[in-house]
């Protein structure tokens, strides 16, 4: 065991970990950040994707100790920090995933949303092909990816219009549906 000083979602965290513990184990079982999921055990599914200095990596294939010195972002840190308003503010990617039906079982989606966010960090206007490429390391078994890609495209359009970070879930009927999200 050694004590690791990690920076996770902007917070300095100290955690005791064995050398053979992965970052995913430490996030989930030591720090209670259970939003990062374990789906395949060994780097085949992408559900454990977190951002390392803004870039997507698989936390199941990252030793916890190697996270020291990097800024780690998990799904719990994707939304901007609360600004004191009562209305929760989410990342436009999260809002669009919620609006477009991309969250069926939701299990792969923390990793998926982080991959999408990493894409938008470097490419504000990705083509559909670039979205497919960027998400090609995240397996989803529910959606057929259609509504996920629609969600990313919706987030891109809303960010461009400056209105992506709307409230999380007002629960009201008839919020504006995403373009193309609803069949005729």
């Amino acid at each position: 065991m050694r004590v690791l000083q990690l920076e996770i979602n902007g917070d300095a965290r100290e955690v005791a970990a064995h050398d053979h513990w992965t970052l995913l184990e430490v996030l989930r079982y030591s720090l209670g950040l259970v939003g990062s999921k374990q789906g395949c055990d060994k780097g085949d599914c992408g559900s454990c994707t977190v951002l390392f200095d803004g870039k997507p990596v698989l936390s199941c294939l990252t030793l916890a100790a190697s996270a020291v010195g990097h800024q780690v972002t998990t799904i719990e840190g994707l939304a901007p920090k609360p600004t004191g308003t009562l209305q929760p503010v989410l990342d436009p990617v999260q809002v669009a995933f919620n609006d477009c039906g991309a969250l069926q079982c939701g299990f792969c989606q923390p990793g998926m949303m982080l991959s999408a966010r990493a894409l938008l960090n470097t490419n504000a206007e990705p083509s559909r092909e670039e979205i497919h490429q960027a998400l090609s390391g995240n397996l989803c078994r529910c959606t057929g990816y259609t509504q996920i890609v629609q969600a990313v495209e919706t987030a891109v359009a809303r960010i461009a219009q400056g209105d992506g970070a709307s409230a999380s879930n007002d629960g009201a009927a008839g919020h504006s549906p995403p373009d193309g999200g609803v069949p005729a």
């Binding site: 939003g35 998990t74 719990e76 929760p88 989410l90 919620n98 969250l103 939701g106 999380s168 879930n169």
Partner: peptide, 11 residues
């Protein structure tokens, strides 16, 4: 939206 959508969106 789904009633659990926000919970799933935030992890």
């Amino acid at each position: 939206r789904k009633i659990d959508g926000a919970a799933k969106a935030t992890g």
